[in-house]
Design a protein around this nucleic acid. Structure first.
Length: 565
RNA sequence: CGCGGGAUAGAGCAGCCCGGUAGCUCGUCAGGCUCAUAACCUGAAGGUCGUUGGUUCAAAUCCUUCUCCCGCAACCA
């Protein structure tokens, strides 16, 4: 047994999560955490809302609320959604917590003491009407190169030229629309990445063999281009005020305190039960801890460069990431998810249409691992109907119904197993071994394909054994076959539990069992196949899943703004 | 010449690192079964592996040209 620390990139509090957010870090981290718990490891699974920054301030402004209440409200909304998707966080915290404030200050002080914090003057755009400095993104105007009227302060989307906000003609604030802007100079604190670079490079090189290609190549690209000092403060109200003389009216940049949130939220978790939980065991003295981070590819630079550099710069022995798993993006019917254009399906709505396991299974089996992948309701319906209904649900149904009608509602006695069972068990064990291997290696598509192959073996077996024919001649042999099948149901439930926990519970409940402390460690199918004995009662129950009709698919497409009717 | 990822049957993907008969799932077609959810099982058809040139006895795989898609480009997070 080892200790495994799992974190998911912290979702930003302002937006409502869509399926892309779910599949890009939250869901796979949960599947991994569940799998590791079930294979006998001590797991700490941490996530939470990332709350600071301009976007929250503007969001609160537009909602007519103060930022604290606005974040509190949205935090609850996120929390509820993830609860509905059965994400099994040990702690779902907030980057605005007092624990994170302490943590951020502690790390900042260490960096400052070690000489990795420098001061620089920065020219910024001040909006007299908004009474705030505007990030480049919040300024639009006419592009001086191509005349495009909606160019942003950092870049013109039309001609792709990189701009300074001062280049724009008729520059305006996107917040108020005001053009009453001026350039002001302001002093800010920078993290001296170049000074930390040698240590960082050494650390990063040691990860080459372990990180997925996407993550490692993105990290190396940044190093190749050379690191520059990075600004870690902002002229905002919403954030942790900077504990340094002359900077009291500024706050830390959201990207400085957000990843520190992993530590802060761990403290939050430890503070709930100080007698039995300890922050240090996981983050400071945790040489026995294996740390796996999940995130979308846009997050990789921060987790591979800035955050490790921050931790290295403290000089403390903070735990740094062992495996950084980056995902590509899920697109919607070939385009982008967009709330404003009502395109795409958002997590809150998704859960109203189908319960979590439909989404969990579909998303994990189509997770954007090697490149972007596209969500479509046609694909969704086909996967749900074929895999969950046709293969898994139907197997459970045919076995339980046949057993009940021929032998009553208890597992029948008598009969012997044959070579047929041995062959089947061998095949299943091989799939299980590969399933475990891929789950450990975070190769989710391959893992899911093995899981499906395991379910398929159930149908293969019952077809080959044909108990419905055998029973006419040899009732005992038919009993033996159905006993094996009943045990397969239990085995399928245990193996599927990390992906589809609710369904696993349902399958076990049919035998009055529950998941409880179910253990997948050293899973030996030839022993497990004898777990349920003759005389064990069961209930047939309703089908595990509902089929999705072509009409329903069309309805969903229309409702959620698909471009392909 | 900014950087990275991707392009393989109608659809979604694996194979590429380490060259040796192009594979999986869905869909389609045919057959089987009748325990089960229009389900399940078996078989078949379907691909000059985005493009150009090269290395090699041999290239999806290694090198090169170009095209298209996605993301990033450090002050959105």
């Amino acid at each position: 047994m080892s200790k495994i620390l799992v974190t998911s990139a912290l979702p930003y509090i302002n937006g409502v999560p869509h399926l892309g957010h779910m599949v890009g870090c939250l869901l796979p981290s949960d599947v991994y955490a569940r799998f590791m718990r079930m294979t006998g490891h001590e797991v700490l699974y941490i996530a939470g809302t990332d709350e600071h920054g301009t976007t929250s301030e503007v969001g609160a402004l537009k909602a007519g609320m103060n930022v604290e209440d606005y974040c509190q409200m949205n935090h609850q909304r996120h929390r509820q959604t993830y609860h509905d998707f059965n994400l099994s966080f040990d702690c779902f915290g907030r980057t605005s917590s007092k624990q994170n404030r302490e943590m951020t200050y502690e790390i900042f002080e260490a960096l400052n003491k070690n000489g990795f914090i420098e001061e620089r003057a920065v020219k910024q755009i001040w909006s007299n009407d908004d009474k705030m400095f505007l990030a480049d993104r919040y300024i639009t105007g006419t592009c001086p190169y191509c005349g495009y009227e909606k160019a942003r302060g950092d870049q013109c989307e039309n001609c792709t030229k990189v701009l300074e906000p001062t280049d724009l003609i008729n520059a305006k604030s996107t917040i108020s629309g005001s053009s009453n802007l001026e350039v002001k100079e302001s002093k800010h604190l920078f993290l001296s990445l170049p000074k930390i670079e040698p240590k960082l490079k050494e650390w990063l090189k040691s990860k080459e063999a372990f990180w997925p290609d996407v993550a490692y190549s993105i990290a190396m690209k940044w190093l190749k281009e050379g690191l520059e000092p990075r600004c870690i403060t902002r002229d905002l109200k919403w954030g942790f005020s900077v504990p340094k003389k002359g900077y009291e009216d500024k706050v830390f940049y959201v990207w400085f305190d957000a990843p520190i949130g992993y530590l802060g939220i761990t403290k939050q978790w430890a503070d709930e039960k100080p007698d039995e939980r300890n922050f240090k065991d996981w983050w400071l003295t945790g040489d026995d801890v294996y740390y796996v981070q999940f995130m979308g590819k846009d997050n990789v630079p921060y987790h591979a460069i800035t955050f490790p550099a921050t931790l290295l710069g403290t000089g403390e022995n903070y735990k740094k990431v062992d495996i950084l798993k980056g995902f590509s993006y899920l697109t919607y019917e070939g385009g982008k998810f967009s709330k404003s254009e009502n395109r795409g399906i958002f997590a809150e709505d998704a859960i109203k249409e189908f319960e979590a396991d439909y989404w969990r299974y579909f998303l994990m089996s189509n997770i954007p691992e090697s490149s972007d992948s596209s969500f479509s309701f046609d694909l969704f319906a086909s996967v749900i109907n074929k895999d969950l209904n046709g293969v898994l649900g139907n197997f459970v149904s045919r076995v339980l119904k046949m057993t009940a009608s021929k032998f009553g509602n208890t597992i029948p006695a008598g009969g012997k197993t044959t070579e047929l069972e041995n062959t089947m068990l061998n095949t299943v064990q091989n799939h299980i071994d590969r399933y475990f291997k891929y789950m450990n290696a975070l190769e989710f598509r391959k893992a899911l394909s093995e899981l499906r192959a395991i379910w398929v073996e159930g149908n293969n077996y019952i077809t080959a054994a044909e108990p419905w024919t055998v029973i006419k001649e040899d009732e005992n042999r038919a009993a033996a076959i159905l006993r094996v099948c009943a045990n397969l149901i239990r085995i399928f439930a245990l193996l599927s539990a990390p992906i589809t926990p609710q369904t696993a519970e349902k399958m076990l409940q049919a035998f009055s069992l529950n998941l409880g402390d179910a253990d997948l460690k050293d899973f030996d199918v030839s022993k497990q196949i004898e777990f349920l004995k003759e005389g064990h009662s069961f209930e047939v129950g309703e089908p595990l899943f509902e089929r999705i009709s072509p009409e329903r698919t069309l309805e969903l497409k229309t409702k959620y703004g698909s471009t392909q009717p």
